[in-house]
Design a protein around this nucleic acid. Structure first.
Length: 468
RNA sequence: GGCGCGGUACCCAAGUGGCUAAGGGAGAGGUCUGCAAAACCUCGAUUCGCCGGUUCGAAUCCGGCCCGCGCCUCCA
């Protein structure tokens, strides 16, 4: 049984998709006004884990992620750089796709852009007006929250208890009630606008998600994800709009991931602890170490990003890599050991059972590391046969289809000069000139090549160059 | 004020009524090695923020308190 914590009910619920074997999920995507930061990626990596887990469980997953390419920030950014909105958002949209590839995040099936769905939004807004849920004021159109009795169901907020007054009309639009939100913003001088039946203007933020999710997934769909900060008002408003419009339940399961903080503090540009993926990779951080770090803390728990944590993530990944390395660089006798088949089966079962319980990643990783530990013991005892090697390797690859944290085990050719050095060292060792041998080993290590002498000869691994 | 999350070993982090409190990192000792590295073995919380209570039995349930954090109108 698969169970997820549903923000709507505030508890874990059995997951039953609308259509057996099929999952339709929508995840809130980037506003393409800047490079995405590691907090954004925490959400995307969590969603990727969720999706990969569902795929591993045999579901067909239809995944939609929006690209918000028109809002205050994109407009402001484009203006500052003297670019058209389209030119400006293109830069960050492309960067976004590069980044998710770097982090091995699977592509969604659809990436609808807000600016490509204006007519759909107009249609929904008109429908809401016709049903009396929306009203026009000064050329802008607002959703009337008082007309939707269930407003606040997701965020557990009562309208009457909302703290009021601080940022009323910060954007200079007028509306009947503070909690009402804009569906359509009238044209402002110097800003992009669309000429529509609603008058010249641009869409509010929330409407795009209601329109694009239901367009690609249906009026009711299974899963909607985002960061906790989206619960209110964004997702609350999406529910109000969508359900007011269709008269049907919008989403069955709402999954929200918690925020990330950096070295114990909220990440912010002013504190200087704000990191994009590019900031980290340019410092030499392995993106998959970051992926592991983001993945390894349960999604509903606040994650404290630290550079020490990144190092620990790297060490954990290294342990996995070393195990696979052994599988590929030893010679094994023919045959198989039945215990290994059992071991692998139990590990897989435990792994998926753990993730089935609201994505309990810690226990899933425990299953993985127990497999490696016991596998290493069999390896040390010389009990791994050719058939077992295959089974162990396949198991690791299967689990990594969900985690996607293992480095590729490509057979990389070392440059000729390094191969020569290794050979030179082997000669020195044979001649018992260990001083020279160690000197060469240190040199190569500084270049990121780690040498290990085993019974089956010398072998090398790529490591981060030591800065000594 | 409202809603919510968390405090488990040196660090990260599972476990929510009962076998020895997972796993990873770091550390100590040992095996292997020319020395290393990797791997393996051994060790490491009589204890789960604090104080009460319920129970045969609690890190886990109840009450109170302390501490840290997030959100409360466009920030994942």
């Amino acid at each position: 049984m698969i169970r997820f914590y549903n923000t709507l009910s505030g508890q874990k619920e059995e997951f039953i998709p609308l259509e057996p074997g099929q999952v339709k999920m929508y995840t809130c995507g980037p506003t393409v006004y800047d490079y995405a930061h590691i907090g954004n990626f925490r959400a995307y990596v969590f969603e990727d884990l969720l999706k990969r887990f569902l795929l591993a469980m045999g579901f067909k997953v239809t995944h939609v992620m929006n690209i918000t390419d028109v809002d205050d920030k994109t407009i402001r950014g484009a203006k500052a750089k003297n670019l058209s909105l389209e030119e400006y958002t293109k830069i960050y949209t492309e960067a976004f796709f590069e980044d998710i590839d770097t982090l091995k995040i699977l592509r969604a099936d659809y990436y609808p852009r807000a600016t490509h769905h204006i007519p759909d939004m107009v249609k929904m807004i008109k429908g809401l007006m016709a049903k009396g849920y929306a009203y026009e004021k000064d050329g802008s159109i607002y959703f009337d929250v008082s007309k939707f009795p269930n407003y606040g169901q997701l965020a557990k907020i009562k309208i009457s208890e909302l703290k009021t007054g601080v940022r009323i009309d910060a954007d200079e639009y007028s509306k009947d009630s503070v909690q009402d939100f804009a569906l359509w913003k009238k044209r402002k001088e110097g800003e992009p606008y669309w000429e529509t039946e609603l008058g010249p203007g641009r869409p509010g933020w929330h409407i795009e998600c209601s329109v694009m999710s239901t367009k690609y997934l249906g009026e009711t769909f299974d899963i909607h994800c985002g960061g906790v900060d989206n619960i209110f008002p964004h997702h609350e408003n999406e529910i109000a709009q969508s359900e007011a419009y269709t008269g049907k339940k919008f989403v069955n399961y709402w999954l929200h991931c918690h925020h990330l903080i950096v070295e114990g503090e909220k990440m912010s540009k002013s504190k200087g602890n704000f990191y994009t993926l590019r900031d980290l990779t340019s410092r030499g951080v392995d993106p998959l170490d970051l992926r592991y770090l983001l993945l390894a803390t349960h999604y509903r728990k606040m994650l404290n990003f630290t550079f020490d944590g990144l190092r620990q993530a790297g060490a954990a990944r290294r342990r996995l890599y070393d195990f696979i390395y052994e599988l590929y660089h030893r010679t094994f006798p023919p045959g198989e050991t039945p215990e290994i088949k059992t071991l692998v089966k139990e590990a897989k079962n435990k792994f998926l059972a753990a993730l089935s319980d609201d994505l309990n990643i810690s226990q899933a990783l425990t299953a993985l590391f127990e497999l490696v530990k016991k596998g290493n013991i069999f390896l040390a005892q010389g009990q791994v046969k050719r058939g077992d090697r295959q089974i162990l390797d396949q198991a690791l690859q299967d689990l990594d289809k969900v985690l996607a944290v293992l480095p590729a085990l490509e057979e990389e050719q070392l440059p000729q000069e390094i191969l020569k050095k290794i050979e030179e060292r082997q000669k020195a060792r044979a001649a018992r000139n260990y001083a020279l041998a160690d000197k060469i080993r240190d040199e190569l290590r500084a270049q990121g090549i780690l040498l290990e002498d085993t019974k089956e000869g010398v072998r090398w691994k790529r490591i981060k160059p030591t800065s000594s």
